Computed example of a mutant assay.
Amino acid sequence: MNRLLPFVVLALVAAAPARADLHITRDHGGYIEEYKAKYKHIRDTRQRVIIDGICNSACTLVFGIVPLNKVCVTPKASLGFHQAYYDKAFTFGIKVTSIEGTSELMSYYPDTVKDWIRRNGGLTTEMKRIKNGVELWKIVDPCPDAW
């Protein structure tokens, strides 16, 4: 039996799911429901999220779904917030804001994100950006070298 133990351990390790961190470099957002599902999967599989570039719009839902101790930012990180709007395919190409969608976005954000949004005039149709630095670090920690 002792001779089989290394093979049993190897088989268990090989069968375990590989952990893959989500590395965000250029994400301009999309449909809220798709991001909610994606981030719930990331949360449930205990993956880490490294924001290493643009994370705009629905991408920012990461802060309300994935535990903040599993999210970090690099010096290239940039976040963008705006009001939710309906798919332009259904509004003849016109940007029509969604009060319900915007309210849903805000309901997911932690207080640190909500505070930043309020201090910067609230969500509007225009993108409000926050780049790496002290303001961003009030929301999420910089990535440790080990990540």
Rank of each mutant, 00 (worst) to 15 (best):
W116H: 11
E33D: 14
Y31R: 15
E34K: 15
L123T: 04
S57F: 10
V96Y: 06
L12K: 06
G29H: 00
S57L: 05
I94S: 13
D111G: 01
H23R: 14
S78I: 12
D44E: 13
V66N: 06
K138D: 15
K40Q: 14
E135T: 08
V134A: 15
P110E: 08
R46F: 10
V62D: 09
L61M: 12
K76N: 15
C72Q: 13
A84F: 02
G93N: 02
P75E: 15
P144M: 11
H82Y: 02
L10K: 06
T60Q: 07
R43V: 02
G64P: 03
A146N: 08
W147Q: 02
E33T: 14
A20G: 03
A84Q: 12
N56A: 08
G121A: 12
F90A: 15
E135N: 11
C72W: 11
N2R: 15
A14M: 14
K128M: 07
P17D: 11
G53R: 08
R119E: 15
P110V: 10
V13D: 07
R119C: 06
C59H: 06
M106T: 05
R129P: 00
F81D: 03
F63S: 02
E100S: 09
T97Q: 05
T91W: 00
Y39T: 08
N132P: 02
L10G: 13
Y35A: 07
Y109G: 02
G121P: 05
T102S: 04
R118W: 07
K138C: 08
V13S: 11
